[in-house]
Design a protein around this nucleic acid. Structure first.
Lengths: 237, 237
DNA sequence: CGCCTATTTGAACCGGGTCAAGCATTGTGG
DNA sequence: CCACAATGCTTGACCCGGTTCAAATAGGCG
């Protein structure tokens, strides 16, 4: 099975979106990409390893991490189809500063550094879109810095729930169809799994959410938002 | 006094560095920038205000902040001559997500969104450099997320000292010529000023640093580095 | 010199991390 | 198909680091 860009339906993918510009160079240029099947739990980018291009998610879900003190993971973001992984992937001779692991079976499109550089150095519209993407991610990340340093654990957990709801939630019934372990939730929120469990239990008791095993369902979105609102005078979008 | 780009000596400035590419469009294009004098303590970018382009630091020093719960500031980074401020400055109709304040008398070069967009959409080499800049900043920021969520206060303070030493330090005699208040140090490290003071006192007692008023001098760089080394298996550069 | 602000130190309190034990769930082999 | 092991989830109790409050001292500036 081939996953060529022309027939791809991820309109938010930076490559797909700009395919007409990219094809100016060579109508078959995207055939040079590699498609990679990736089973759940498989880590496909290792921190410190030499870069070999960027990964675009064709389908599936991915967590992006940095490893800290005695192996404790910090989940930086969760990505889904159409998104890009691997900041430094276009420089040569560098190493990845992040790790990436599939949290579901995932199909990845890998563009080599040289191929990508060729595209980016000749099609400014594409490069501009990439720049925009990184500027946006930078803003997200800087908001997370503030979150980490100023919020209480309860607020961090609520912030996390709202994040995964925004990104993976079913906005009709309030369910979040994302299977993360308590430990992974803690790794995102920057706390311990016990703490996450305690907060989830409390929120359950307060009728703000419902949980059943790994399923989380939001019952009162506005109350949750309200609780962290004072931190977010200048919200991201 | 005019500060035109041709005679500017900030070779690390993204505009100056690429001046020959930019002049392809129009040899006088950079004359359209505005030069702004900015006294110490003056905030020249307000969070939430509509964007009016990017600011390049011609000379001086700047802190970039986000405001959080009941006005508590988080300093995201400290910038000096040659660097860029204002992530979102090239989109139209957006608002700044960060604030920026001069921490010394500063001269800024302001490029409007439209001017910058014109340049970026026609000179891919310039756009590529900007993209690289944001990708690097993203990495820095993500490292700081981990720092904030995993380090102890003592480690955060040491991390901060090493950061300002790397950026503003005199590497011959170990002094850091940067006048920040204890509160500003705390705002960067993500803690309180009392805590910063306590840690500085302790480090002084341990002969790792010397302080006199706002001056900080590093006495034992390797011991300081060693103390946070286990957090940084995969260091940034 | 005197006022005001920044810095420093001490003490009390509390949030959150750590440890430990019980419970639920899933998977594996007999 | 069941027993049992292994892993993940949940809750309680304790303790420590870090924030908050308060008071004393030093430093900067008119």
């Amino acid at each position: 099975m081939s996953y060529n860009c022309a027939s791809c339906e991820n309109d938010s993918c930076l490559i797909k979106k700009n395919l007409n510009y990219i094809n100016n160079l060579d109508p078959n240029i995207t055939d040079q990409k590699h498609t990679i099947q990736c089973k759940k739990s498989r880590q496909f980018i290792m921190e410190g390893a030499p870069v070999n291009g960027l990964y675009f998610i064709y389908s599936g879900k991915v967590k992006v991490i940095k490893t800290g003190y005695n192996g404790k993971e910090q989940i930086l973001r969760l990505s889904k189809d159409g998104e890009v992984i691997g900041h430094r992937g276009f420089g040569m001779g560098e190493t990845y500063k992040i790790g990436a692991t599939a949290i579901e079976d995932t199909i990845l499109c890998n563009f080599s550094s040289s191929l990508l550089k060729e595209i980016l150095l000749s099609e400014p519209k594409v490069t501009f879109d990439f720049m925009h993407f990184y500027a946006n991610e930078l803003n997200r990340s800087e908001t997370k810095v503030k979150t980490m340093s100023q919020m209480t654990v309860r607020e961090k957990v609520i912030d996390m729930i709202l994040y995964i709801y925004r990104k993976f939630g079913n906005h009709d019934d309030g369910t979040i169809g994302l299977e993360l372990s308590r430990k992974e939730l803690a790794d995102y929120a920057g706390t311990t799994d016990e703490q996450v469990i305690r907060i989830l239990s409390a929120l359950k008791k307060e009728q703000l959410i419902y949980t059943k095993a790994k399923l989380i369902k939001i019952l009162d979105l506005s109350k949750l938002k309200k609780e962290i609102a004072e931190h977010n005078f200048f919200l991201d979008s």
